[in-house]
Amino acid sequence: MQISAEHYFHAALERIRQANLIYRAGDSYALAMYTSGLAVESMLRAFRWKKDQSFEGRHDLLRLFRESGLLQLNEEHLQSKGLSPATILDQVARFQGIMNHIVLLWTNDLRYAPDALARSRVVKMRLYEQRKGNILKGASLRLQNAAQEIITRGAFLWTWSKK
């Protein structure tokens, strides 16, 4: 199957919507997490594809984030709005923080992980340990929210960069 930048882009929008549906169905939090990360991976691949059409088989989000040029494009947009350098740097750090969260919580192996294994992974990281309730559900929601931010920003920049 030949997948283009547009395909990756539209897949990203579909996957984040599907991640939300899976999350809301309940009891499928590992799959919801996997789908959220897949949405981000698709968006990063969409931007990367516009610059480099060589196949990248690794599911390394840090590397894809760099190669997508999304961070630079975001910065260019903020500069075009006349924001101060300090505000832009804060926004860049915020963007990187969101990616940091996704990079830590997501792994391609989540597609094979039952919820119990995914929960054990989050517990071992000692993330959210002060929080009560279903720790995997919480991690899934946090990952989904972070992914949604990347998708929303990516979709905006996708259109903006075409102008």
């Binding site: 840090l62 984030f65 760099r66 961070l71 630079q72 910065e75 350098p85 740097l89 990187q96 990616m99 940091n100 990079v103 830590l104 792994t107 992974r121 071992k124 990281m125 000692r126 993330l127």
Partner: peptide
């Protein structure tokens, strides 16, 4: 410098426990 800072794409900041699993 501002130019150098722009070349820093993503540095994951992790605790030792997170790193062990990650």
């Amino acid at each position: 410098t501002a130019a150098e800072l722009r070349r820093v794409a993503a540095i994951a900041a992790l605790t030792p426990e997170e790193f062990l699993v990650w």
